[in-house]
Design a protein around this nucleic acid. Structure first.
Lengths: 113, 113
DNA sequence: ATGTTACTTAGGAACATGTCTAAGTATGAA
DNA sequence: TTCATACTTAGACATGTTCCTAAGTAACAT
């Protein structure tokens, strides 16, 4: 069974902030500079930088310096670990329902005999 | 395009803590009492309660009182909003790649003529 | 060489989070 | 009724988070 993955802490926590989700949404459409990302976020630039730092720490984005501007990009495989964790739990849950169905079936068969 | 959903703040933030993920993992296998959930978490009961409170606030679990014990259960549809958000972003990203492919194709065609 | 642009760093205020201990309250058992 | 169990509430405390302003630094543009 899935053991403790610290990377998921960073990933899910990063996703827990609306500003950061908006940034990711923007980056899903393509690369953008820090100031492009900051535009429309009624927030000081250093605050946006903090969010970018968290997203990068969570491996959700990458960034590179091009001259004096920093270009940010979504990590292609960004969401996979989170999606995998979620579907693993769903799978366990489904399994549980199946076992419940089996149990009911067994009860009904026992009643018939 | 998906607007701001405060429920995702609670959901993803709740998922960002390892103790809470472990609790969810446990509940995916079936209901459990508070003390059953607390067992094996080297943590005082009130601390576990706090985690349960967050999970319930995020609609990831439900709980009911049975005598003096509280039974917690995973919400069946627990992960859907989070999964939907993640796949929506992936979809946008895939779309972007398609458009990039189109762009490259266009460049190559232009070069041929 | 100088000014402007685009970040970056530093430091701090306000509030949220994760944990604890100690002291309840409600139920069940004897 | 009295004791044990299973939470529950209250309060404290250290840390973490999210924002800010002010003061850098590096790369262009002129």
């Amino acid at each position: 069974m899935s053991k403790y993955e610290p990377s998921l802490d960073l990933c899910f926590s990063a996703l827990g902030d609306p500003t950061r989700r908006m940034i990711l949404q923007r980056l899903a459409r393509g690369e953008a500079s820090v100031s492009a990302l900051a535009a429309g976020h009624d927030m000081a630039l250093p605050s946006v930088m903090e969010h970018l730092k968290k997203l990068e720490a969570a491996n959700l984005i990458t960034s590179r310096k091009k001259g004096r501007t920093r270009i940010c990009a979504l990590s292609p495989e960004a969401f996979t670990p989170a999606q995998n964790w979620l579907s693993a739990q769903s799978a366990i849950w489904e399994g549980r329902l199946d076992r419940f169905d089996d149990y009911i079936t067994t009860l009904m068969q026992e009643k018939e005999t």
